[in-house]
């Protein structure tokens, strides 16, 4: 314990020390919502913004997303990434221009999808560490750099210990970027120093979010976000029987039947 917390409360010096301590951003104060305001960034989803204590993704802290598979990455973060890259309409973010780094991505990012999401591939960097030690070292290096404005990282195969997560979390305090760690949903059962922990699961008609832990709010929150357009079931496939896989396989495999909505792209 440092000298600040060792002082006797009640004295002038003690109260000053306590005040200084409470000004620190990393002191956990339950659900009082009386915490030092930190920078946030619009998530692009009004419903999610409302559920988050500070009305947006918190910056300069560790956000944990628990999933079964890595899904809806850009649906959740493309808007914030555009803002951080200085590509949004918000004049407050005009000066943003750092890199968007994908650390240990689960597969190759698709440049076409990036461009369709309004993200310039020029600013997106993929980094593939070979093991957990490299992962942690790279996370710390990237989070501490001013050049990286957004870090999306996927936990390596080996489990991260609490100490390693703490190391990552401490590194995120040094700059004002957005730092996200994607983990398997089972990992959300473990303790973590992350400031925000969300379980994300896709549903048939919505993207379900369960906020398990949030600095400044002890209560869990659940919400459903709208799915991207290209996730929804095509009306003609629902209306007709062509939506059944069996019929498709039969149709495609044996004879080339005309499926409603088929578009032919010329070579």
């Amino acid at each position: 314990m440092d000298s600040q917390t060792a002082s006797v409360p009640g004295t002038v010096k003690g109260s000053l020390d306590l005040e200084a301590l409470l000004r620190r951003g990393d002191v956990w104060r339950g659900h009082s919502r009386r915490f030092v305001p930190c920078q946030t960034i619009d998530s692009g989803h009004p419903l999610l913004n409302t559920a988050l204590v500070q009305q947006g993704w918190p910056q300069a802290c560790l956000i944990e997303i628990g999933q079964c598979e890595s899904v809806a990455t850009w649906h959740l973060f493309a808007h914030s990434a555009r803002l951080l890259a200085g590509l949004g309409d918000d004049p407050a973010w005009e000066s943003g221009s750092g890199l968007i780094v994908l650390l240990n991505p689960p597969a190759t990012p698709f440049a076409v999808a990036l461009q369709q999401s309004g993200l310039p591939p020029e600013r997106v960097l993929a980094v593939s560490p070979s093991d957990k030690a490299d992962f942690v070292a790279c996370f710390v290096e990237l989070a501490r750099s001013q050049a990286c404005s957004m870090l999306l990282s996927w936990q390596p195969k080996q489990k991260l210990s609490y100490a390693e997560l703490r190391k990552c979390q401490l590194a995120t305090h040094e700059q004002a970027g957005l730092y996200v760690l994607f983990r398997h949903r089972h990992a959300l059962a473990q303790s973590s120093p992350a400031a925000l922990r969300i379980h994300v699961s896709p549903q048939r008609d919505a993207l379900h979010l369960l906020i398990q832990k949030q600095k400044g709010n002890l209560r869990r929150a659940e919400l459903c976000l709208e799915l991207p357009d290209n996730w929804n079931i095509q009306p003609d496939l629902v209306a007709g029987t062509a939506g059944s896989v069996a019929q498709h396989i039969a149709a495609m495999g044996q004879v080339r039947v005309a499926v409603p909505g088929r578009r032919k792209n010329e070579a």
Binding site: P121, L125, A126, V127, S128, S145, A147
Partner: peptide, 25 residues
Amino acid sequence: LLAEQEKLTARIRARLGEKNVFKVK
């Protein structure tokens, strides 16, 4: 910021090797 980006990528590449740091086009 450009200089900072250069330094950052140089450090990451030194740690992981050039093939493990890339962009997609």
